[in-house]
Simulated scan of single mutants.
Amino acid sequence: MTFDLFEDGRPESMGDGAVLLRAFAQAQATDLVEAIDVLAEVAPFRHLMTPGGKAMSAAMTNCGAQGWVSDRRGYRYEASDPATGKFWPAMPPTFHALAVRAAQATGYNGFDPDVCLINRYEPGAKMSLHQDRDEPDQSQPIVSVSLGLEAVFLWGGTERSSNVRKIILRHGDVFVFGGRSRLYFHGIAPLKAGDFPGVGQRRLNLTFRRVAPI
């Protein structure tokens, strides 16, 4: 593994259509965190079950036209929250605008996300290497926003066995990937303990995607 840490705030190419935007969302981070807490009152965070029957260590919820869910039936998107039977809460306009702006800043014009996965990591939580491949149109990029505690992002390649780079993601950083990197394996190393001002002992992650055909 190699370790990457960029400090100067410039967009950093991660290769093959992936770009890291340091502190891109920092100016509106407080509003984003407050909005997440409001959304979680409507659609609470929960630890989803993998098809193999294991609970995910990161808790999650959704907002937007559909939500990503997982259980013994598999991974999929559904228009309503299985826990309540209600539609997922609407995506806040500020969320949508941020995702569009980040996509444009990295050369992905025309991105119109209709779903946002919200992950909550607490100390020790992680995300194993995986591909984001449940979206029908994989020509659309993914925009990922980091809030709260610092995380080690694992950035691989087209195979699970590909070499993995370790990239520090901090409060307000945005990672955009599409094109050839759209199906790269990626994950989050176990989160270290800490207490981030205004966010607490957690890392929040907004992941914007397009699910419905354009």
Score class of each variant (00 low, 15 high):
Cys63His: 02
Val19Ala: 01
Tyr184Met: 03
Pro190Glu: 08
His186Thr: 09
Ala97Arg: 14
Ala25Ile: 01
Glu7Ala: 13
Val199Met: 12
Phe6Gln: 04
Arg101Leu: 02
Met127Ile: 14
Ile214Thr: 06
Ala29Asn: 11
Gln66His: 11
Ala79Trp: 01
Tyr184Cys: 02
Pro190Ala: 07
Leu149Ile: 07
Met1Trp: 05
Asp71Lys: 08
Arg133Asp: 14
Ser181His: 00
Arg46Tyr: 15
Tyr75Thr: 06
Ser139Tyr: 05
Ala27Lys: 09
Pro197Glu: 08
Gly9Asn: 12
Ile167Phe: 04
Gly64Ser: 06
Ala65Asn: 07
Ala151Tyr: 05
Val164Phe: 11
Arg10Met: 08
Ser80Met: 04
Val19Pro: 00
Leu20Met: 08
Ser162Tyr: 03
Gly187Glu: 08
Ala58Leu: 12
Gly74His: 06
Val143Asp: 01
Pro51Lys: 12
Leu48Gln: 13
Val145Asp: 11
Pro82Asn: 04
Ala99Tyr: 03
Glu122Phe: 02
Asp8Val: 03
Pro136Asn: 10
Asp37Arg: 15
Ala23Gly: 03
Gly124Ile: 13
Asp112Gly: 04
Val69Thr: 13
Ile142Tyr: 01
Ser181Ala: 15
Thr94Gln: 15
Glu122Val: 14
Ser70Val: 05
Glu41Leu: 13
Leu5Thr: 11
Val42Ala: 11
Ser146Asp: 15
Val33Phe: 09
Met91Val: 04
Tyr184Gly: 00
Gly15Trp: 00
Glu12Val: 13
Gln140Asp: 05
Val211Arg: 07
Arg160Asp: 02
